[in-house]
Simulated assay, not measured.
Amino acid sequence: MTTALEELAIRLRDFAAARDWEQFHTPKNLAMALAGETGELLAELQWLTPEESAQVMRDPETAGRVRSELADVALYLIRLADVLGVDLLQAACAKLDENERRYDAETYRGSARKAPPLP
């Protein structure tokens, strides 16, 4: 049984293949496109106060743009992971496991400080 993430990666792979875009979907190009889309998402929030940014989804027009940029970021990330052969869900879970060990809740609750690297 495939996950929704795997199904989306397959759909993106098929989308690229149908347009003969695999030639352009190199890791470098996809990473650059991902950075560009992340910048577009950032631009939607750039000049908002923290309070305004927390309410951004209440305005339908802004919410639509933010959703669209989030989708672009997600699609490029999933496509990049697929091209590189990375199981994105597994990698994310492994990273979260590492962060749970690195940032124990008791020590880091309410703190934004960085933890030292794990041994």
Rank of each mutant, 00 (worst) to 15 (best):
M1Y: 11
T2M: 12
T2Q: 11
T2C: 08
T2H: 12
T3A: 02
A4N: 06
E7S: 09
E7W: 08
L8V: 10
L8G: 06
L8Q: 14
A9F: 01
I10T: 12
I10C: 08
L12S: 00
L12D: 03
L12H: 00
F15Q: 12
A16R: 06
A17G: 02
A18T: 05
A18F: 13
R19I: 03
D20S: 06
W21Y: 13
W21Q: 10
E22F: 05
E22R: 06
Q23S: 13
Q23Y: 11
F24A: 11
F24P: 04
H25Y: 12
H25F: 12
H25L: 15
H25C: 15
H25M: 14
P27Y: 03
P27A: 02
L30E: 02
L30I: 04
A31S: 15
A31Y: 04
M32P: 05
A33S: 10
A35D: 15
A35E: 14
A35P: 09
T38G: 13
E40R: 11
E40L: 02
E40M: 01
L42A: 15
A43V: 08
L45I: 07
Q46K: 14
Q46D: 06
W47C: 03
L48S: 07
L48G: 10
T49D: 00
T49Y: 01
E52V: 00
E52S: 08
E52G: 04
S53Y: 07
S53Q: 06
A54S: 13
A54C: 13
A54P: 02
A54R: 06
Q55G: 09
V56W: 10
V56L: 03
R58G: 03
R58V: 04
D59L: 05
P60G: 01
T62N: 09
A63G: 04
A63N: 06
G64N: 08
G64D: 02
V66R: 00
R67N: 10
L70F: 11
L70W: 07
A74P: 03
A74W: 03
Y76W: 09
Y76P: 03
Y76S: 05
L77H: 11
I78L: 10
L80N: 10
L80M: 02
L80R: 11
A81E: 00
D82H: 14
D82F: 06
D82Q: 07
D82L: 00
L84G: 05
G85Q: 02
V86G: 05
D87K: 00
L88T: 02
L89H: 10
Q90R: 13
Q90D: 14
A91M: 05
A94T: 10
A94N: 08
A94E: 13
K95D: 03
D97F: 11
E98G: 01
E98R: 08
E98S: 10
N99W: 07
N99S: 09
E100N: 14
E100F: 11
R101W: 02
R101C: 08
R101T: 07
Y103C: 01
D104L: 13
D104F: 06
A105W: 13
E106N: 09
E106M: 07
E106H: 10
Y108D: 09
R109K: 10
G110A: 10
S111W: 07
S111E: 11
R113S: 12
A115W: 01
A115F: 03
P116K: 07
L118D: 07
L118S: 05
